[in-house]
Design a protein around this nucleic acid. Structure first.
Lengths: 225, 225
DNA sequence: TCGAATCATTAACAGGAATTTAATAGACAA
DNA sequence: TTGTCTATTAAATTCCTGTTAATGATTCGA
């Protein structure tokens, strides 16, 4: 779990860094807004701690910049300004949380945990995708339905994962082709149809509720409803 | 966007409810922990505001209960307890944010917005076109009117989407032909008339308000007025 | 290293659904 | 009323999808 600290006061930056690293986070420090924004956009941090008053580019603008490119990256704002309007400005820029200096490190740590929990829950610790009574085990790369384990080949697995992550949305063949096969769907291939057929035999055959449905002329949809 | 308020003090609950509804959220109130937990688990709220000290089941346990079943449901804790250990307990139970009473409503609103922004960005903001009482679901590729779902074929869907995106404008047959069928409207085809007829049967039949109207000699118009 | 097994992909075809054509009936304007 | 424009229906055709089998490609174990 990696955290970017954008803070121009070296002492404070170092204090935060040390505390976070002691708690198992890896960190990086940027000493001004320009550098900070660049780092935030190029690397994939799990969270950004951002002072409002920093040189070059203001914390508010850094936050807006991050939001524009990475709408899901959590941002905690740090500031000495304690009026409601200041907080409002911070939240309007897209901050997820707002902490007033001076703060106790424990409080920062709690809020960091609260924001990163979501990341670890959704992408790391939960290794299972569930839709209706079908489970896809991301570790073992197999599916389960009706208490039985279903072995999948690599492509079947990729396709099923894509369908499940995009449930309740009609997916066109060209969308599936680019995302799962990484090909342009112009060659007259019918490979998607064939693999849908494979998946149906494995996960839908014998069940009343058909999870994979065809929308003729449009594509396929994996239904949760 | 719907919010569950779990708070036993009727005055405070009502105060929060009113403020949120004025800001466009729909709300529900639960007056004790048992009821609150049940509601949180059965319905799909976008956020829960949860007082720590409530009857029946404590806020801490309600939060843990929610986390166990719905790890992604945002929870804001409300409490009069301002020590770090109290906050720690709240965050450990899985709260996403923690607000100490008395608080200003604006601050609560900001934090609600910060937590729901993530939701509206990613999954829950369903893509829907609406004209009068007709909805076109761009994900599921179907229409809804009068509470009923209306299945559409590929061409019907394309035509309806085009009409709705160009509502309140008379669309000539040749314009529809080029945009929806990608053909030059010179061949004496009547295919547009036929498909308008199909759509009328599906979305206008049985309703007093006819959304698709004919402008003789000019084309068709989808009326919002 | 070779052969067997598994997997990915292409191709062909049947059946069904959607699209299109065509013919007729109805509505409207002059 | 007449001719033009539109609505409606049914039939014809085209297109789409499901399915199977065959062909390369790859992996794996002996």
């Amino acid at each position: 779990m990696s955290i970017l600290i954008i803070e121009d006061e070296p002492k404070l930056a170092e204090f935060i860094r040390q505390g976070l690293e002691e708690n198992g986070y890896s960190t990086e420090i940027a000493l001004d807004g320009k550098l900070g924004l660049a780092k935030a956009l190029e690397s994939n941090f799990d969270l950004v701690i951002l002072d409002v008053i920093i040189p070059e580019v203001s914390g508010i603008d850094v936050c807006k910049g991050i939001r524009a490119e990475k709408p899901n990256m959590p941002v905690i704002m740090l500031t000495a300004l304690d009026t409601l309007s200041d907080k409002q400005r911070g939240f309007d820029a897209g901050a997820d949380d707002y902490l007033v200096k001076p703060f106790e490190f424990r409080e920062l740590l709690m809020r960091v945990k609260a924001l990163t929990r979501r990341v670890s829950v959704s992408s790391l610790s939960s290794h299972v995708l569930k839709v209706k009574d079908l489970e896809l085990d991301l570790d073992l790369k197999l599916a389960r339905r009706g208490g039985k384990e279903i072995a999948l080949t690599a492509k079947e697995y990729q396709l099923l994962e894509f369908l499940m992550r995009n449930k309740n949305r009609v997916l066109s063949r060209s969308e599936i082709a680019t995302k799962v096969w990484e090909i342009n769907f112009d060659t007259g291939t019918n490979i998607i149809d064939v693999y849908i057929n494979f998946l149906r035999k494995k996960i839908d055959a014998g069940f009343d509720l058909k999870l994979i449905q065809t929308q003729i002329g449009m594509g396929y949809i994996f239904k949760d409803i």
